[in-house]
Structures are given as C-alpha cells and as structure tokens.
Design a protein around this nucleic acid. Structure first.
Length: 263
DNA sequence: ATGACGACTGGAAGTCGA
C-alpha cells in the first residue's frame, strides 16, 4: 500500500497538479492539508472518477484537511477527541481528520502555525500538540498492535539540520525547544517518525517559502512528517520526498511525502 | 531552468502562511 501526505495550499488552485500526482504516483491513500475550501467546494468528482473515496473537513479560506482513499474509507472522525478550540467563542478548527483506510488508521493533520512566540497562536499550537499526544498515547495503550499514522504538516523542524540556517530562525517559531519537545513527546509515547528513518539525509526539506528564491537556493524546512505506531512502522519499506512537485508552474510551497507499506 | 510570494475574500486591501 502506498500512502502520501501533502500540504496542497488550496486544492482548487492546484487540482490539476493533484490529479497528475495521484495518477503518476499511484497512491492508495492521500492525506491533504490546507485545502482552503468549504466541504461543498471541494472538487470530489475528478478523484471519485479515478476510484477514490473522498472525505473532507474544510472551513472557508483557512486550514482544511482531507483524505482520499481507494482502499476503503471508514470510521471518519472530524477533529480528535479533546482537540483545543481557538478564539472566543471557541472554534474547533479544520485541522484534523481521521479515517481507516485499508486497515490503517490515518490522521491528516495541519498543526497550528504559531505565528509568533508572543502570539496566542503559539500557546494554542503547544496545547494542540499536547492534547493530540495524549490521545495518541491512549490509542496505542488501548491497542499496542494498532496500525496508525499521524501524517501532515507539523509546523515544527525537529532538528537543527531541518532548516537551512538556524540563525535565521532565532526567536521564531518552528525551532523552539518547547515545540521540539512537544514533537518528541510522541516518540516518548511509543510512536516513530518513519520519514527520518528512511530519508536520513540532512537538509532534506519538504517546504520552501515562495519568497526570496528559497527553492532555487534550497533554503527550506523539513516540517511534513509522519509518526507511525510500531506495527505500522515495521511495514514501511521506503519513503520518498517528492521534490519534483515544487518545480514548474504554480506549485504548492510544500511537496508530497510518500510512504510505501509492505502488505 | 527551480528565478525574486501566493491564495483567499470581496469587489480594495487585508489576512494568513512559516
């Protein structure tokens, strides 16, 4: 089975690219983030014509997650139990969507950005991660043989070598000790970040800002990551960061990460 | 070429991303 995750940065603006990727990569399951549209605006039909089931959780122009699957799509959950709200009145944002596809529990995740260390979004980000970690730990405790993956845009660069210049990020989000600890906590809860195991090369990025010629200069960040349960991690035979998808006209600023799983 | 930010909404300029 082939499973991919991609922050698409608007599914409507990049429908053709998404369809082309699905066809050339032959993914069985595709988790999308930043779809940037309401559920009734999501272009389901072209994917359904290719044999995929589609489930979405969107809200107007911000956030939005989706899962496409041609190996079944069951037990959909919009948001994870205990997912923090933001704002007053509090809103559960469209950042987490779970479904079971081909026997694997898949969560498409768009972790809050954080914006600035003094911004309320930063505390929200840390709380969001802590609550998700609590759930993830419970899921695994309840079923040690669980096959599950937490995929998506974590908005954290776990290692110094996951950014091109640590000095550039001094005082900024994505690299703070608190964010990195929030990320490591999933490993302490028994999960394994499998893309690192299979693609260990330093300065291998999944995101490049549109500005400042970041992509031609290869000034990016590795922030699209996959935590797997032990049972699923054992099935991963390879991981591919699809850098080619950052090239050409109107790309997303993120590229897909593809996981191959043994049957 | 991989080349100097892009998508959204509203209908201009502001918000958001990281």
């Amino acid at each position: 089975m082939r499973l991919a995750t991609w922050n698409i940065n608007s599914i409507r603006a990049r429908l053709d690219r998404a369809l082309a990727f699905v066809e050339r990569s032959g993914v069985d399951v595709l988790a999308l983030q930043e779809t940037k549209c309401k559920d009734d605006q999501f272009p389901r039909e072209p994917f359904e014509q290719l044999g995929y089931e589609v489930v979405t959780s969107g809200f107007s122009q911000w956030n939005g997650v989706a899962i496409l699957s041609r190996v079944g799509l069951a037990d959909v959950e919009v948001g994870f139990p205990g997912q923090p709200t933001f704002g007053d009145p509090g809103v559960v944002e469209a950042r987490a969507l779970g479904a079971t596809c081909g026997g694997v529990r898949v969560w498409s995740l768009y972790v809050p950005n954080g914006r600035d260390l003094a911004d309320p979004h930063y505390a929200y980000k840390l709380d969001w991660l802590a609550r998700l970690r609590d759930q993830a730990g419970q899921w695994l405790a309840d079923d040690p043989g669980l096959q599950a993956a937490l995929v998506g845009d974590w908005n954290i660069a776990p290692l110094d070598t996951d950014v091109w210049d640590l000095e550039f990020f001094a005082g900024k989000t994505h690299v703070t000790p608190a964010e990195r600890e929030a990320f490591r906590a999933f490993a302490e809860a028994g999960w394994t970040e499998v893309s690192r195991e299979h693609v260990p090369a330093e300065h291998t990025y999944t995101y490049w800002d549109y500005q400042q010629l970041r992509f031609p200069k290869n000034q990016g960040m590795r922030i699209d990551l996959t935590y797997a349960t032990p049972a699923l991690a054992a099935r991963v035979t390879g991981v591919s960061i699809e850098r080619v998808e950052r090239k050409g006209k109107t790309p997303s600023d993120h590229v897909p990460v593809v996981l191959d799983l043994a049957d």
